[in-house]
C-alpha cells in the first residue's frame, strides 16, 4: 500500500497541484449536480425524474466531499467555497455549466415562476441535452475516478473508491438511455444527434490540460488529462456509434474553465446558487 501523504507533508508545488485538482473535481461535481437537479419535478416521466434527482444528489454529495478535502488543506469551508466565491474563481469546465436549452430559441420564455432561468428551463428546456451530457459526463467521471482509486494522495483515493458504486450506476443509466434514444424514433435520433453535435466540443473540454498535469502524473497523483481523454473516447466512441450517433469530426475542445475563463452561463448559475446565501453571508442558513 502506498504511504499516505498527510496534510503536513504537502508543500510547494505538490500541494498546489493537489489543491487545483480538488477544485476541478469539486466544481465540476457541484455544477453538474446543480444542472441535473434543475430537472427535479420536471422530468419526462416520474421514474426517470426520480433517477435523475438521485444522480444530482450523488454529484452534489461528491462536491461536498471534495470541498471537505480542500478545507482540510486549509482552504475555506465547503459552504464558503460553494456560496461565496465569484464565478471566475470556479475551476469547472464549460461543459457542466451549459444551460439545457436548444440553440436558436429567440422568443422569451413563458412567465411561470417569476424566475427567468426556471421559466426558460420549463418552457424551452431540452432534456436531450441533459441526458446526453449525463452520459458523456458520467463516462468521464467513471474513467477519472477509477484512475484516482490508486492516487498517491490517499484521501482522494479513498473517496474514489467510495464513489465507485454510485458512478457505476450513473454510467448504467446513461448507457441505457443512449442505447435506446439514439435510434428509437426519428425525433429521438434528431434530438440526440443534435445534442451530441452541440456538446461534444465542450465534452472534450473536460480534459483541458493544466500546468499541473506533468507533476500530477509524475507524482502518481492523477493521470494526465490526455490519457483520461483517450480512455474516455474508448468508452463513449463505440457506444455512440452503436446507438447510431456520430462523433462530430474535427471537434475542437472548448477550454478555459480550468483557468477561470467561463461562459456567461456560469455567472448566471453562480448568481442563482448564491442568491439566498448572499442576503446575509454571515448568517447561518
Amino acid at each position: 500500500m502506498a504511504v499516505a501523504l498527510s496534510e503536513t507533508e504537502l508543500t510547494g508545488d505538490r500541494r498546489s497541484a493537489i489543491i487545483d485538482l480538488l477544485y476541478r473535481l469539486a466544481d465540476d461535481s457541484l455544477i453538474i449536480g446543480h444542472r441535473e437537479s434543475e430537472w427535479t419535478g420536471l422530468g419526462p416521466i416520474l421514474e426517470e425524474d426520480i433517477a435523475f434527482s438521485s444522480m444530482a444528489q450523488d454529484k452534489m454529495g461528491h462536491a461536498l466531499a471534495f470541498y471537505t478535502l480542500l478545507h482540510e488543506l486549509a482552504e475555506p469551508n465547503p459552504n464558503q467555497l460553494a456560496f461565496l466565491r465569484s464565478a471566475s474563481e470556479f475551476r469547472c469546465c464549460a461543459f457542466v455549466a451549459l444551460e439545457s436549452f436548444a440553440d436558436g430559441q429567440q422568443s422569451p420564455p413563458e412567465s411561470l415562476f417569476n424566475n427567468p432561468v426556471r421559466d426558460r428551463l420549463v418552457s424551452q428546456g431540452d432534456w436531450a441535452l441533459s441526458c446526453t451530457r449525463q452520459f458523456l459526463f458520467s463516462e468521464a467521471d467513471a474513467v477519472r475516478m477509477a484512475a484516482l482509486e490508486t492516487s498517491s494522495y490517499e484521501p482522494l483515493a479513498q473517496l474514489a473508491r467510495k464513489f465507485r458504486g454510485e458512478l457505476k450506476y450513473h454510467t448504467m443509466h446513461g448507457r441505457m438511455l443512449i442505447e435506446r434514444l439514439g435510434a428509437a424514433t426519428e425525433e429521438s435520433r434528431r434530438r440526440m444527434s443534435a445534442s451530441v453535435d452541440t456538446l461534444f466540443p465542450y465534452a472534450l473540454g473536460m480534459f483541458e490540460t493544466t500546468k499541473w498535469d506533468k507533476l500530477l502524473e509524475a507524482e502518481g497523483l492523477a493521470p494526465a488529462e490526455c490519457t483520461l481523454c483517450e480512455r474516455w473516447l474508448e468508452e463513449v466512441g463505440p457506444r455512440l456509434r452503436a446507438a447510431g450517433l456520430e462523433i462530430p469530426k474535427n471537434a475542437e475542445p472548448v477550454c478555459g474553465g480550468r483557468i477561470g475563463r467561463h461562459p456567461a452561463q456560469l455567472a448566471r448559475l453562480v448568481d442563482d446558487i448564491q442568491q439566498v446565501r448572499r442576503l446575509d453571508p454571515a448568517a447561518s442558513w
Partner: peptide, 23 residues
Amino acid sequence: AWIPHAPSLQRKLALVAKVQDEV
C-alpha cells in the same frame, strides 16, 4: 423552483431529496 437557491450544500441536498420524494 427553489432548489437552485438553497443556501447551503446540506439544504440543497435535502431539498432535492424532498422534492424527489414527492415525485
